[in-house]
Design a binder for these strands. Structure first.
Lengths: 238, 238
DNA sequence: ACTTGACTAATTGTATACGATCAATAGGTT
DNA sequence: AACCTATTGATCGTATACAATTAGTCAAGT
């Protein structure tokens, strides 16, 4: 049996990559699960080759860790990992906010304002649609990175941001946190509108470090994450 | 013709990756060259599969760009690209230097000092062994990143540093630049030895921005690089 | 001269097969 | 029991074959 014709024009590698990535981020694969090439190939109805490529990409982006002959492990996050990622983001994105403040055009500011407004609306609705808020949040940050004009930096920062979704503790974002975050965004728009680099940098820094403290302060639910995690820092390539 | 048994224990993918990477960095493949999977496979006596993996890794690291059906292009560098990379490095590595100043043990400082001494010796020899100096330089920076204790950041920064070898304008490092660089390193060791975060950060920042100006200031040799250049209005050093 | 369109050769994308390698397990020895 | 060693089964690393896609070419039409 050969071809169930997939009207999907993308390559199989990409489809598998996106699917697995999504499965991980919604928790379908828990931390420490072993993803073997054969199993995934069967699940998606493709051969091992595209699965391999997908896993390698996921590994290079930090979502999984491939062990030589033991399957790919879904990576867990220690508090140290969270701290690492948010530290880097705090530096890179505050730099980006500063650049954005210097470079933003009127249209850029308008776009930012619109993202900000949408998020404000969402955050005030009684039922918090956390995934949607999260999406708007990502778009807002991505837009600032775009305006900053350093493509490489944007790629790095966005990847780090997406990695954060591995820690799917959306519940940690209570109403108060969301409102504060939304307010931070509005301040960022103002700082950028006025071209105030220092202010923009400072807001972004505190904005991200605040998010970091939410995670590191209350990281309780993944006991399994910590268990599955080998004492960090030691990737043992022989 | 099947297997020439290579006593090399590494995987073929890795060997191909390293070889191609090296070939690019020493200029055996010029900017814009098309590397096809088949040709590389034949050249290295392996099948296309490991070549594919090597190329994908090289692409994810920015050394080449894979075009869907036209082979992998060896990437060139515009002045904008150089500016981007050094901007990011300036932020990440100054952050690392600050962390290192806070965390370094006596042994750490000793190691740094030894790298620094070696480099000082090399830089004072009449015949500049630029590759060796470059290697020591990399080791020095890598050590600071290691001491900083943020492995992710170290990975990112090292990759950016290695990317710099694509711009193989070693000749641009004249005696003066090398001596200044060596002196920067000694100052960095002092700052870290005294646990002076701010000082370490500042030195690293200026150290890297100085290197950036060497590249951007005299990037003349790639005509196509200039063509790809956009009047990117980023950070005019005042 | 310039565009258009079909054709061809080259290249990648994917499937499959097989051997190599390693983790896990069982069994024997001290 | 604790330790070592041989076996085994699962999993990967690589080679090879084939299908799908597209870049490049060239001739015909405007």
């Amino acid at each position: 049996m050969a071809h169930i014709k997939t009207s999907d024009s993308k390559t199989a590698s990409l489809r598998v990559y996106e699917q697995v990535r999504n499965q991980i981020s919604v928790g379908a694969h828990k931390v420490g699960d072993r993803l073997t090439e054969g199993a995934l190939a069967e699940q998606f109805g493709v051969s091992r080759t595209p699965v391999r490529e997908a896993l390698q990409r996921l590994a290079s982006e930090g979502f999984v860790e491939v062990l030589p002959h033991a399957g790919a492990l879904v990576k867990g996050w220690s508090q140290g990992d969270v701290r690492e990622v948010f530290d880097i983001r705090a530096h890179l994105e505050s730099m980006a906010a500063g650049l954005a403040a210097r470079r933003a055009t009127a249209e850029d500011v308008a776009v930012l304002q619109s993202y900000c407004d949408t998020m404000k609306q969402l955050s005030q609705m009684p039922t918090r649609d956390v995934p949607k808020i999260s999406e708007q949040n990502r778009a807002f940050h991505a837009e600032i990175l775009r305006i900053a004009g350093n493509r490489r930096m944007a790629d790095i920062a966005l990847n780090l941001m997406d990695l954060g979704f591995l820690v799917r503790s959306f519940t940690k974002f209570d109403q108060g946190n969301i409102l504060r975050s939304s307010s931070d965004h509005q301040n960022l728009v103002e700082a950028i509108r006025h071209g105030d680099e220092r202010w923009a940098e400072a807001i972004m820094r505190s904005h991200i470090l605040a998010a970091a403290s939410i995670f590191t302060g209350t990281a309780e639910d993944d006991a399994q994450a910590r268990m599955a995690l080998r004492p960090v820092g030691t990737t043992p390539p022989k």
